[in-house]
C-alpha cells in the first residue's frame, strides 16, 4: 500500500522524495511548495536581504534535488532541508564578514566575539514598512549577532525548533546549542535594555 511499508507510515516528504528521485517533477514541485516559505523566511531573517534569501532558497532546493539519493529517511526531512539551507546562509554570512574585514577601518559594528558585522543594505521599502519601530530595533540587534549565534536564534524563535532539533540541523551537540542560545539571549537582553 502506498505510504506504508511493513506497517510503518512513511512521512509525506519521504514519499515525495522517493518519487522525485525517480524523475517525478510534480513530486519535487510539491516538496518546493511545502518548504519554500519556511526556507525563505529563515534565509531572509538570517541575511536580511530579499535577493540573497531567494538565491539561497534556490540553491538549497537544487542541492536537495541533486542529493535526493543521499537523503537518509532516518532523519526528518525538515531537519535535512533546514540543514542544507542554514549552511548556505552561514556560508554567506561568513563570506560577508571576510569581505568586510579586509577593508574594515571601523570596528563600529561588532558582534559577540568581536566579529565585524555588516548591516544589510538592500531591504526594500515595503519590507521595512511592515516592521514597526520596535521590530526594527530588535532586528538590528539580531543582525549584529555573529553567524553561529544567529542561526541558533533564528531556528529557535522563528521555527520554534527544540534545542534537540537545532542540534540535529546544525550537527552539533545539544549542550553547544544550549550555550549559544544562552549567550545569544544574554547578548540581546543587554543590547535591548538600553534601547527599548
Amino acid at each position: 500500500m502506498e505510504g506504508r511499508e511493513q506497517g510503518i507510515v512513511i512521512p509525506i516528504e519521504a514519499r515525495l522524495a522517493r518519487k522525485a528521485l525517480k524523475g517525478d517533477q510534480q513530486a519535487f514541485a510539491e516538496i518546493v511548495g511545502l518548504y519554500q516559505d519556511k526556507l525563505y523566511h529563515m534565509a531572509f531573517r538570517m541575511l536580511g536581504s530579499r535577493q540573497e534569501a531567494e538565491d539561497v532558497v534556490q540553491e538549497a532546493f537544487l542541492r536537495v534535488y541533486r542529493n535526493l539519493d543521499r537523503y537518509d529517511e532516518g532523519m526528518k526531512f525538515s531537519t535535512w532541508i533546514y540543514r542544507i539551507a542554514t549552511n548556505l546562509c552561514i556560508d554567506r554570512l561568513r563570506k560577508r564578514k571576510a569581505t568586510y574585514s579586509l577593508d574594515a577601518e571601523s570596528t563600529e559594528h561588532e558582534g559577540l566575539d568581536g566579529y565585524a558585522v555588516i548591516p544589510s543594505d538592500d531591504r526594500t521599502p515595503e519590507s521595512e514598512m511592515l516592521l514597526s519601530e520596535t521590530q526594527r530595533i530588535v532586528r538590528q540587534a539580531i543582525d549584529t549577532l555573529p553567524a553561529k549565534y544567529k542561526s541558533v536564534m533564528v531556528l529557535r524563535y522563528l521555527h520554534d525548533l527544540s534545542l534537540q532539533e537545532i542540534g540535529e540541523v546544525l550537527d552539533m551537540p545539544v549542550t553547544t546549542v544550549k550555550t549559544r542560545v544562552h549567550r545569544g539571549r544574554e547578548y540581546l537582553r543587554k543590547k535591548l535594555e538600553r534601547k527599548l
Partner: peptide
Amino acid sequence: FLHMALAAPVGR
C-alpha cells in the same frame, strides 16, 4: 521581542 521580530511576516 525575539518571537515577534523573527516570526513577523516577511511581506512577500
